[in-house]
Write a protein that binds this DNA or RNA. Sequence first.
DNA 1: TTGAAAGCGGTACCAG
DNA 2: CTGGTACCGCTTTCAA
Lengths: 360, 360
Amino acid sequence: MSEVNIKDVAKKAGVSISTVSRVINSSKNVSTELKVRVEQAIEDMGYSTNTIARGLKVSRTKEVAVIITELNRSFFTKILEGINQEANKNGYQIFVMETHDSLEKEMQIVSNIAARWMDGIIIASSAYGHERSVRKYIEHLGNLQKREERIPVVSLEYDLEHPNINAVVVDHEKAAYNAVNHLIQAAGRKNIINVTLPRGHYMGEQRVKGYKRALEENGLEFPEECVLEGEYTTYSGYRVVKERLNKGSKFDGIFCANDQMAVGAIKACEESGLRVPEDVAVMGNDDIFVASLLKPSLSTIHVPRGRMGIHAMKRLIELIENKNGGNSKNRVITLDTEIIPRESTGSDAYNRMDWAELDW
Amino acid sequence: MSEVNIKDVAKKAGVSISTVSRVINSSKNVSTELKVRVEQAIEDMGYSTNTIARGLKVSRTKEVAVIITELNRSFFTKILEGINQEANKNGYQIFVMETHDSLEKEMQIVSNIAARWMDGIIIASSAYGHERSVRKYIEHLGNLQKREERIPVVSLEYDLEHPNINAVVVDHEKAAYNAVNHLIQAAGRKNIINVTLPRGHYMGEQRVKGYKRALEENGLEFPEECVLEGEYTTYSGYRVVKERLNKGSKFDGIFCANDQMAVGAIKACEESGLRVPEDVAVMGNDDIFVASLLKPSLSTIHVPRGRMGIHAMKRLIELIENKNGGNSKNRVITLDTEIIPRESTGSDAYNRMDWAELDW
DNA sequence: TTGAAAGCGGTACCAG
DNA sequence: CTGGTACCGCTTTCAA
């Protein structure tokens, strides 16, 4: 049994290909009689129209690519949920792909998408910095073409600073500032270290800035070696804090650039006999659901990931369907973050989440 | 700036389209001179070949669809990692889609994939049971066509029992049996309840069977009301156990069909003043990474998810590239599970995982 | 209302 | 080694 195509249907129904096409795309210029015959034939033969061929002709696929760095980074799941929800509502199918933080891989995927004429892209990019090659890539990304149109792109988490690329972001610097401020003011800490993301990752840099500003404004010292470079994972948080403890460093507070590393940091402290939060207070960042289940539960910065996804997809659809054309005034949507105090900074809030709605 | 196509390149290089095509597909029948000219033109114009058009012609897309139920079910992330790793190694691009446990949505996605002539499908299906419509769908799934070929399908987690559909599975019944046996023999429990998956989900049914068999073989009672229906989430585990406790039920062991529900179950017990594992021992299932971080750490059944993904993709590629044609003898690959005793069943194993390699 | 025919952007066969 | 051409499956004028 080979695949049936529109020609087969036309033959079976005894009409022209054009007519079949009309029936399928519900153009009204078909007599009821032919319409019935064609529908019958389609039913009988189990025909369904070939998206590839159609795509080649009409260049609208109703497909959207979502490019993220790591599928198994809890951070993204909520975002994907938001994106997907909004996509389904509007008849779009999303395809999720991951780059593993490799810009090279990202470029490759983007080419692939463009060559496939997908309708739009939502991307958590690894492109950051002012190197020539990076700027060139962003320029490329902002000008992907299919036929005569441009393929719209929405960036997640931070602004790629290209007039054609929209973005849904939070203010990472401010969030970090608030987190560290909380450690100082609410938890009364004075010697705070910072476990950050790999060098050259935008979010990491911003959070370090916020961290520094908070120290400065509170008149605290900021020795350069207080910034430890992690790499997103629980283990990396554990490792860098452990090393520091083994060297005999003293501190009474840690701000981690994500929740996973914070959990690792807590483990390291506990292994060295330090109590959290009594001896060391710990703040995470992102508010991953699981963070609220641990003991001690983790204080963190809530990032509205679900809304982030929804906004991104909404905007992308506007762009695709040209409802919001070149309106570059509100190119960037900024969402608010919120401090969530839990046990790891001495708050006794058992769980500030409506966990009936969340999962991992 | 409109998109450039092969015609433009040919014109610019002053050669025929055929020649350009030859250069691109690295057929060797091109003189060095023309080759250089063409490559130059491609470079200058930033040309890249249109996958849609090529797909239409050659019906090989190097694309594979991965259909899972829920992107934010930790269970899948490791599997996806395995799949992706193997896919990249072989030059395939994976597209991940989710069905939200809806068979209808699943069907829709499958149609979409078929219409796109993707090269293959890996699916965690929601199709289960012997209803006519379900069997009909599976029949359909096993006979997806593109041009003259069949689109290969590999099922995850359980066998769809169709001669054309391969599968990578674990023995869920046996795993559950082992888990409950552990609760009885190692932890010495006698009144064990079972929090299971929604009715009609294959894995849930199998695990209930294993649960019953373990009770029987140990000469223990099995009152029907000992099976509580959860729905994958932490909260559902919490809810059903809480309800049971409020009714005054007594039990000293719980087997949960996944780790998330087990965590919820533990919360419920603790809220009622029961200590885990002293008063109630709890076993999960799946061995999600986070389960090992909690306090008490969760005893569970390890499912080799990474290997599952790798095997699935390997098999799919064999099928696509026809290296293993219709070899239906080893249609189903069965992997082993393993009991991981941790604190929630009274073992003092701090953490039986190499967490340097894992994350969430 | 209907059908014929011209592409969409490639690939591959055939002749030279 | 090179160019011409038919065709992949579908949509969309353009005439009839």
